[in-house]
Design a protein around this nucleic acid. Structure first.
Length: 575
RNA sequence: CGGGGCGUGGCGCAGCCUGGUAGCGCGCCUGCCUUGGGAGCAGGAAGUCGUAGGUUCGAAUCCUAUCGCCCCGACCA
């Protein structure tokens, strides 16, 4: 393309509203413009990058035997009622009524639609396995959209759904997608990690997330330094403590004691006052689980992992109760809550069950209890792994040391089992003649988020550094003097010949000063820059500069064509 | 949802407190000049000051309502 003819509005100034680097650079490099909160227009250059990603995704999905289709964005509420998700999904699901007052919603995901399709069209095990996917715009009415393409309300997603005859076949489909995702993210030039994940509102039994490692990531992952184990912290299981097996004489249960702790509400203050460590205290957190209060007990220095709590309770939503809500539910001000004599449901982290003679709130203002013991002084409804893992914990698989990292979730795969097919009666006839529910899996990739994640991982102070497979143009040819016929002729010839060689090339034929063109070329992140200027007049030489490392080579035009082809194909073919 | 902030030519902002002429930088248009890291000079176009209502002789400015956008938080007792 000729720069003089395309809409590529680059910005010198840093947009005030953009917080993260990918958002700033996407705006500055003329890739996107905001229409309204969390909703963006992709300009030609940004769309070209997006197309690179979805082409890679498409090629790899097809290679894996998946078939592309396209489903509607507008979906009838009744379909969602069949799975109960019309009620369960929450405000992220944008609902509306059409002119006939029929309830509808904008698809945030497509399990219902695909299951409906397949239950109508697939009758026999002979049609299986089946994997269908689409690349389409999704809408999720996020609480707080932010960071440009990283968390938009409208975004482009690839979603795939597999249908199998039995669990074993479904596991193979899952593994095939796992491998395919590895290939996709690798081909996109991303540094990423597959981690075990919680299955969230999509439901199902087993799941992995693919995380691009970047400081701006909104997710935290934990990984083992010794083995291959890696998981989202929401999911990571904490090894149960062994403390309870210590001999009783060392840890004899002492007499319960009520102590005055005037004004000491925070763990730290109570510990300081009673001269104990946070690990000798149990804090009582009140959550509203689908609106109903539940007390959660964790050691004083631990944090409740809300996703684990949600899963234990089997509810859609948990949120920490506000002070007033706590008081309404228990009659006790926050800071003095405890499990002894409390009237609401109580669950405990497994670690609490291993503790002896700990401190809790007395359920009375300005008092705590000492030497409290689970079993003797109070009972709980359930003991489970409810706290967030820390780097003090050990790998649940091999016992090795753990590390934490931030990541951007770009892919998520789920083994769904038969939750949807049973709810929606998606059945097939197996070889034994019996009707059985289809065994499903679903697999998502945030296509637009990949563009943002790639920039988060590949940029410098001058702009984007696109990985070659994602670059809209592999090279830019700078004509530094439009007025000079010889330079212009050489630049034009290079442009034509590089295109003839099958490359996507941008020719900067704008009537601008050289500095301007250099700055834009850097900002746009085009991997290779070919400068035709004075050196060409003097020695017939052009400059080839590598965006990533600034390496420059001086070559004649014929050599440059060979060299760029070589560099590009090397980058695209390494797998 | 809670808290904070912001809406003024295309973009970034000043002006508002203390009502009276709407200003700056970038960009855009014309010309000259310049041409290897976002030049310079001269001239020019472009804003119902988010919207609605109110106060006033007079409102970007004061009051009320409303819409939109951004940021932070969402409580570890």
């Amino acid at each position: 393309m000729r720069y003089s003819q395309i809409l590529l509005p680059t910005l010198k100034e840093i947009p005030a509203d953009a917080e993260v680097v990918s958002h700033r650079l996407l705006l500055r490099a003329g890739c996107i413009r905001k229409l309204t909160a969390g909703v963006y227009t992709y300009l030609p250059y940004g769309l070209a990058a997006l197309r690179r990603v979805d082409q890679i995704v498409r090629e790899e999905m097809n290679r894996a035997g998946a078939q592309e289709l396209l489903m509607p964005m507008v979906q009838p509420a009744d379909l969602w009622r069949e799975t109960g998700r019309y009620e369960k999904y929450g405000p992220e699901l944008l609902r509306f009524r059409d002119r006939h007052d029929r309830e509808s919603c904008l698809g945030p995901t497509h399990e219902e639609v695909i299951t409906d399709l397949v239950r109508r069209e697939v009758r026999s095990y002979r049609d299986l396995p089946l994997n269908l996917y689409q690349i389409q715009t999704k809408f999720r009415d996020e609480i707080r959209p932010r960071f440009g393409l990283m968390r938009g309300r409208e975004f482009v997603m690839k979603d795939a759904y597999s249908f199998d005859a039995d669990d074993e076949q479904a596991s193979r489909s899952y593994q095939l997608m796992y491998d395919t995702y590895q290939r996709i993210f690798h081909r996109c030039g991303l540094e990423f990690r597959a981690v075990e994940a919680d299955s969230g509102t999509i439901g199902g039994s087993f799941s992995h997330e693919f995380m691009v490692l970047a400081k701006t990531g909104e997710d935290t992952i934990v990984f083992c330094t010794a083995c291959e184990y890696a998981a989202n912290v929401e999911k990571a299981t904490v090894r149960p403590p062994k403390a309870r097996v210590r001999p009783l004489e060392e840890e004899a249960e002492l007499d319960l004691e009520k102590v005055e702790t005037p004004g000491r509400r925070k763990v730290e203050a109570v510990c300081e006052f009673l001269e104990i460590k946070p690990r000798q205290l149990v804090k009582t957190m009140v959550y509203l689980a689908d609106g109903l209060p539940v007390a959660v007990l964790v050691r004083g220095d631990r944090e409740v992992q809300e996703v684990k709590l949600k899963n234990l309770l089997g509810v859609v939503d948990v949120e920490l109760a506000a002070d007033q809500q706590v008081y309404d539910a228990t009659g006790v001000p926050t800071g003095y809550l405890g499990p002894v004599g409390i009237t609401i449901r109580v669950v405990a982290d497994q670690e609490v069950a291993a503790m002896r003679n700990f401190v809790v709130g007395a359920n009375e203002k300005n008092y705590h209890l000492r030497n409290v013991n689970l079993g003797r002084d109070f009972a709980v409804e359930a003991v489970a792994d409810l706290r967030q893992i820390t780097t003090e914990d050990f790998c649940p698989v091999c016992g090795g040391a753990l590390g934490l990292a931030e990541g951007i979730e770009v892919g998520h795969i789920f083994k769904l089992g038969t939750v949807y097919s049973e709810a929606m009666q998606a059945l097939f006839q197996d070889s034994d003649g019996l009707e059985k529910p289809l065994v499903m899996g679903c697999y998502g990739i945030g296509v637009s988020r990949i563009v943002a994640a790639a920039i988060e991982q590949n940029h410098d102070e001058n702009g984007i550094i696109f990985p070659i497979p994602l670059a809209p143009y592999q090279a830019v040819v700078l004509n530094l003097s439009l007025k000079d016929a010889e330079i212009t002729g050489a630049a034009e010839a290079l442009y034509e010949e590089l295109r003839a060689a099958g490359l996507d090339i941008l020719l900067d034929d704008r009537d601008e000063r050289p500095g301007f063109k250099f700055k834009d070329a850097d900002l746009l992140g085009i991997p290779f820059r070919i400068t035709v200027g004075k050196r060409f007049l003097k020695d017939g030489i052009v400059e080839l500069r590598h965006r990533r490392d600034g390496l420059t080579e001086e070559l004649d035009p014929a050599q440059v064509i060979v060299r760029v082809r070589e560099l590009v194909s090397a980058a695209l073919n390494q797998e």
